[in-house]
Design a protein around this nucleic acid. Structure first.
Lengths: 128, 128
DNA sequence: CTTGACCCTCCAGTGACTGGAAGGACTATC
DNA sequence: GATAGTCCTTCCAGTCACTGGAGGGTCAAG
């Protein structure tokens, strides 16, 4: 399989696939003309990576998860730990965004949004 | 005022303040020895920027907001538009994170987290 | 034999800082 | 006046996970 076939099948852009090779997440073969040749195992790994990225795991987390996936002697506790840590970060992030959301919603609601210059949004930013 | 005084008063690191000057958000004076000299108006702007950044506005949004703030003839509608667009982005982001959160919570709950290799998290990533 | 769609590598840019090196300036103490 | 310590400066590199583009080789169809 060539890179664009893999891109189609995994939903990952060719650029991203090349990048994943560059940082050592996959090691596709090469044909004589220099083109990358992807085995099923490469495609499988890329799909795995795509899904992990969709869940928001960092590339380093993905590397760890892939290593755990390939390690038949892994402990599920190790996987769970990675996922739990990530979940905690996501929940922190959600809380942070919700706090911004609450403030912004309030300010937007208070703002007349007309031709006049008076604006509670700017007043808030200016005075804290 | 020197940079570290301003950093203390605004809560922004000196590095960030220098960066804001570099990208043209502020234009502090210079004393003979080359040190930056911050007027009250600079400190005020930096505090404004700090609060806007806390609300998650991008630097370019901050630049726009600062310009609107300084424009006595602004229309509050323009400010409101910036804030509403940002709020929309935040709400998209929250929804995306909540979707990750839901999936991850489910997977983490299903995972035994013991010494055995069987792991629903990896199974999910491997098969979608 | 040319066209167009592939593929390759390498370099630069994104956003918003952050860390560190190398060196000048100021303040306090001896 | 020397020294130590803290401040200030600039400049360069790195972060994260790609993404865009230049410049050039390869392949299949007509």
């Amino acid at each position: 399989m060539n890179i664009s076939d893999v891109a189609r099948d995994t939903g990952l852009p060719p650029k991203t696939i090349r990048y994943y090779e560059e940082i050592g997440l996959i090691r596709p073969l090469r044909s004589e003309n220099g083109y990358r040749v992807f085995r099923d195992s490469d495609v499988h790994k890329l799909a795995f990576l795509g899904r992990a990225r969709t869940l928001g795991f960092s590339i380093e987390d993905c590397r760890t998860l892939l290593a755990l996936y390939e390690d038949q002697d892994r402990a599920s506790a190790d996987v769970k730990q990675v996922a739990q840590d990530h979940l905690d970060k996501i929940e922190d992030k959600i809380a942070q965004l919700q706090s911004m959301q609450a403030t912004l919603k309030h300010l937007v609601r208070e703002c007349a949004g007309d031709n006049r210059p008076d604006c509670p949004i700017l007043s808030d930013l200016a005075r804290g």
